[in-house]
Design a protein around this nucleic acid. Structure first.
Lengths: 209, 209
DNA sequence: TCGGGCGCTGGTCTTAGGACCCCCGGAGTA
DNA sequence: TACTCCGGGGGTCCTAAGACCAGCGCCCGA
């Protein structure tokens, strides 16, 4: 029999890592070589242990999963396959994670057998999306990642997401209120929001602000 | 030795429940009598198994932890003690959970020994807050829980938090737009928001909507 | 039983927000 | 070179939003 698949578990909750271990130790061909509690630990552990597959949580304090993905410079033959584990409430993050090089995307409520099989799938070089994650991709408008906002629009949206008025934003950015209104109008159109309230909610869901 | 403390685990992620089990089975005086994946299952399991302590996740699909708390009609001598387990990102929810009768509040990154001791503490009838949870209470303005909104105001705020306009809300509630505006004005004052955008953000942070 | 809150409803009035126009300068790109 | 995109600036117009004020019914305590 060949060597087992070497795994790195990355999640900020020890209890989650413990649960994953309990699941994965039932499988002969899987072995957990390291754990990490945040993005920085994850990058260090990847360098040190060279795992075959990383089980990565997107939401973490400090450097989060998305940040880890972006720093790994995927795809890269030497880099591990990344299987993203997250909550059903984070469907919006799927497109960005896929774009950043994640090989697969499963929800934490997956059962043990399915998780093991997902790990084998991404280790084999394939991309895997759970049905719900696929829906997340689909509802992301055209199937591409979240709409591309210009840096200025993203900045304005961030201030909207802090509850600022156009006048406050104009003072914060040192431009006229009309200019702010122009940016607001444009970003509303791009993200498909009807008004600033919907835009603020969109920003929160997409982690802007 | 006395009977073990009977526990119910409530979390929508099986992996988290598995992790908790792995932790708790190390303790002689603790025994997990049931698990539940959502609020409705939790209420049913409480009625069926009569646990001493419930480990409750606040964020769940369907009926969430806050909803479970509100339906239990705490404090009640027959009711179990509730130890809320949640993420560091949910500090804002502490006051509402405490108000709804939770006995304790710990973050999921707690280590096994501390978790076991927290369970014994709430089982003994005491209230327990982790330091971070205490901060969450403190930053809740005056230290008191979230402002008391009338049912109607809460309803209106929920719709604002879905990005609805006053006109849409008026149609949804079957009242005039002027009436909606009054409710909006009043709830803005009560929660200390300057406009509906800030109100929507407040609602999201406090788990309304 | 008679205020007095309070929740819910409604009206008038002012302002903030957003749509739809226009222009310019700079940086990249075909 | 011409085209496109971005940031910035400006103006007009209409509507949504919010402040302010007022009435009604209910319950509760004096």
């Amino acid at each position: 029999m060949s060597d087992p698949i070497r795994l790195l578990l990355v999640d900020d909750h020890p209890v989650v890592r413990q649960g994953l271990r309990a699941y994965l130790e039932l499988e002969d061909d899987l072995t957990v070589v390291a754990e990490a509690g945040d993005g920085d630990e994850a990058l260090a552990a990847i360098a040190e242990h060279v795992p075959d597959v990383v089980l990565l949580d997107l939401k973490m304090p400090g450097l989060d999963g998305q940040g880890v993905l972006e720093r790994l410079d995927l795809p890269d033959d030497d880099a591990p396959s990344i299987l993203v584990l997250t909550s059903a409430t984070d469907a919006e993050r799927v497109p960005a994670a896929i774009e950043a090089g994640a090989s697969g995307f499963v929800y934490k409520d997956i059962d043990p057998d399915a998780l093991a099989s997902a790990i084998r799938t991404v280790h084999a070089g394939q991309t895997l999306l759970s049905p719900a994650a696929m829906r997340g991709l689909m509802t992301g408008s055209t199937g591409s990642a979240q709409p591309t906002l210009t840096p200025r629009e993203r900045q304005v949206l961030g201030l909207i997401a802090r509850g600022q008025t156009n006048r406050q934003i104009s003072r914060a950015l040192g431009v006229s209120e009309k200019t702010v209104k122009t940016h607001v109008t444009n970003l509303l159109r791009r993200i498909g929001a009807a008004d600033r309230t919907q835009a603020a909610l969109w920003a929160v869901r997409h982690g802007i602000g």
